[in-house]
Design a binder for these strands. Structure first.
Lengths: 208, 208
DNA sequence: ACGGTTTCTGGACGACTGTCAAGAATTTCC
DNA sequence: GGAAATTCTTGACAGTCGTCCAGAAACCGT
């Protein structure tokens, strides 16, 4: 009994580990080619295995991509949370947030465009919607954590709600990503400036 | 000579007319299936012709879709401009704008999701970028026209720049579209409220 | 009514797709 | 070390894709 359980546990671990490994290869492929141009064979080619193995670890293509989206979420979450943790002054937090967004724009541009691609797919394919909405909610909470922490540090209230705050910052980031990938220089600087301005607009400290 | 010209002109007209007709069928197909799932045969199936004719009027698939994107722009522009023209009071303009956005969200949801899909494709495919950036600039100008007209009517200045203003409104609309298509009720109401709030935030009239 | 253009059809092509299954290779356990 | 269970490879399958082309159909001025 106990041996069976132990073995079963080990199997699950190995199984899950390989799923993660394959999902990594899939995420890498998706982020460079986009959803429309990514095939299972190309994903396998970017991994250490042959194309047949994908159907051993995933039911079908939707199952694989859904798993990828969920794994992507985990990467997202850890990315931002270190920003809010370190800062102790309002300006430090705001600057750190703006810097962090610019940094991830440049460093993880491919991953971010994949996110926007998949979110667009969710507008058509119902099977993606649930996960996409959940990731959106997670990102929303992350933005809210930063903004409300900023509000704490300044003592001024946040004027907008959670979803609206996220939507606006997301709009800024998306525009910046498009400009950045199009090679438009100044996109990073512009993102930095507009993020700083939006923070001050959402949590106004200077009296007008 | 003159007959040749006249005939040539007529030919161009008929040629262009058919291109528009096929692009219409393509736009309809794209807006219901999305870029990734749209094939030339399906487009032809949604038109009055067979699939072979597409290569008589368009060089290849990219040429067709590029033409579609440009045609889509024309539809976009005329959509919003009537809103700003009618209103004469600040509140009338703001309300008309919010109403208009909600109306087009509900009525033209399929077209809007196509726009976000194609804009995501531009993050990967360089051939779409130029047209997408141009449409984005057009939309940006439209938003700016409304906001600056609102600023005129109230006498208060606009606090944010053109691109930032557009990015924020676009973020709101995109979130609302996702919620709306996901069947989340209240999405339209929420869009209306947040648009009103954003207008007041970008062009503040009440002193704080 | 006819000859020449333009327009359109339908089939064919090679390449690629997701999926599956038979069997080889590897690991695991006694 | 050998049997059993697993993991992985390889090749095949039925479709679909974009593209191209030979020829039918429609339209044209004369």
């Amino acid at each position: 009994m106990s041996t069976v359980e132990r073995v079963g546990r080990r199997q699950v671990d190995k199984f899950e580990e390989r799923r993660r490994e394959l999902a990594d290869a899939a995420l890498q492929t998706l982020s460079t080619l986009g959803y429309a141009r990514t095939s299972l064979r190309e994903i396998a080619h970017n991994s250490a295995f042959s194309h047949g193995v994908l159907h051993y670890y995933f039911r079908d293509k939707v199952d694989l991509i859904t798993y990828c989206v969920r794994q992507y979420k985990a990467v997202c979450v850890q990315r931002y949370d270190q920003i809010v943790a370190t800062a102790r002054t309002p300006d430090g937090l705001a600057e750190g947030f703006a810097d962090g967004l610019v940094a991830t724009l440049v460093a993880d541009g491919a991953m971010h465009r994949l996110w926007y691609d998949l979110r667009s797919q969710a507008l058509f394919e119902e099977s993606f919607r649930e996960d996409v909405l959940e990731i959106d909610a997670t990102l929303e909470r992350m933005i809210w954590r930063i903004v409300s922490r900023y509000s704490e540090l300044t003592g001024s209230p946040v004027l907008t709600g959670e979803s609206m705050t996220y939507a606006m910052f997301d709009g800024l980031f998306q525009q910046a990503l498009l400009r950045h990938l199009a090679g438009q220089d100044g996109a990073e600087l512009h993102l930095h400036a507009s993020v700083r301005q939006l923070i001050d607009q959402v949590v106004p400290t200077t009296s007008r």
